[in-house]
């Protein structure tokens, strides 16, 4: 039998071609960026090289990582405080549809509300420290994850619950062994959207008012006409988002081994 894990020669060749294409796109982006730097001057558009050097320097000095650490803790804390009740609430309310119906217009309103517009309000309430950023992340994360989980619980296959009950499962077993695992893909889908958004929310709150964090670095760089500093901070924020996505992908792969493999996102469908 053929080993299914080893790609056949044509597949390998096309994969190599794709990697080359990726490098090519990367090179084009860097070239365009350099062209912009050359045309407008480093004062307006910092060069890729200067950004790379500054990035390494500020990572080495620990300054960049310290600010990234603040932003990351705000986002992580907010995701935790907002995400945990957002997952638990639909699971606990599964047998109480009336309560879900009562909450619904308020949740829909919260979901649709422009949460980022609340940032000044949170600064009024919690000051310019970490608390106001965490509060903003909490409101951003909570509603997204709540509706994602609720969708998962609602889409639950009633026949699986019945089967489990016939096999002798108590309500507790049903909640733990049927409802929760069935909702996990939806919960993940929620966090996948909520976490990058939460990191962005922390950065935005720092942009408005803060004395530390990546948003503060951006604002500070702009104030000193230091475009290199601005770019480095934005790059770091983007890397945080990518890291969060990679971690979630790895967790999802582990937790959802039982699912048939699905197509990647931007698949062409041809």
């Amino acid at each position: 039998m053929i080993d299914a894990t080893a790609p056949s020669p044509p597949v390998r060749a096309s994969r190599r071609r794709t990697h080359l294409d990726h490098l090519l796109v990367f090179a084009i982006i860097i070239a365009l960026w350099s062209l912009a730097t050359w045309h407008f001057g480093t004062y307006w558009v910092s060069s890729p090289w200067a950004v790379a050097i500054r990035f390494v320097e500020t990572v080495a000095s620990g300054e960049l990582l310290r600010h990234a650490g603040y932003t990351l803790s705000e986002a992580a804390l907010g995701t935790l405080i907002g995400g945990v009740p957002a997952v638990l609430l639909p699971l606990l309310l599964r047998r109480h549809p009336v309560v879900v119906a009562i909450l619904d217009p308020f949740m829909v309103g919260g979901y649709g509300a422009p949460k980022l517009a609340f940032a000044p309000l949170f600064i009024v309430w919690f000051g310019i420290g970490m608390e106001s950023k965490v509060a903003l992340v909490v409101t951003v994360v909570f509603f997204i994850v709540y509706f994602a989980t609720l969708n998962g619980v609602r889409a639950l296959d009633a026949r699986l619950v019945q089967t489990a009950q016939i096999l002798g499962a108590s309500e507790r077993h049903v909640a733990r062994s049927i409802v929760l695992p069935a909702a996990i893909p939806s919960i993940f889908a929620g966090f996948r959207i909520a976490v990058p958004y939460g990191i962005a929310a922390a950065v935005i709150a720092e942009l408005i008012s803060a004395n530390r964090g990546l948003g503060y670095l951006v604002q500070n760089g702009a104030m000193n006409f230091d475009t290199t500093g601005v770019f480095v901070a934005v790059l770091m924020a983007t890397l945080l988002v990518q890291a969060a996505i990679s971690i979630m992908n790895a967790m999802e792969k582990r937790l959802l081994r039982w699912r048939p493999p699905s197509e990647p996102w931007l698949e062409t469908g041809t």
């Binding site: 026949r159 489990a164 039982w258």
Partner: peptide, 28 residues
């Protein structure tokens, strides 16, 4: 638990392996 029911759809729990599906009833 006095009546077992094998339905038309298999209704296996998709997140459990064969052995864990078989052991599910004993477990609960």
């Amino acid at each position: 638990r006095r009546i077992g029911y094998v339905t038309q759809d298999d209704n296996l729990l998709p997140w459990r392996s064969t052995i864990d599906n078989v052991l599910f009833a004993l477990e609960v």
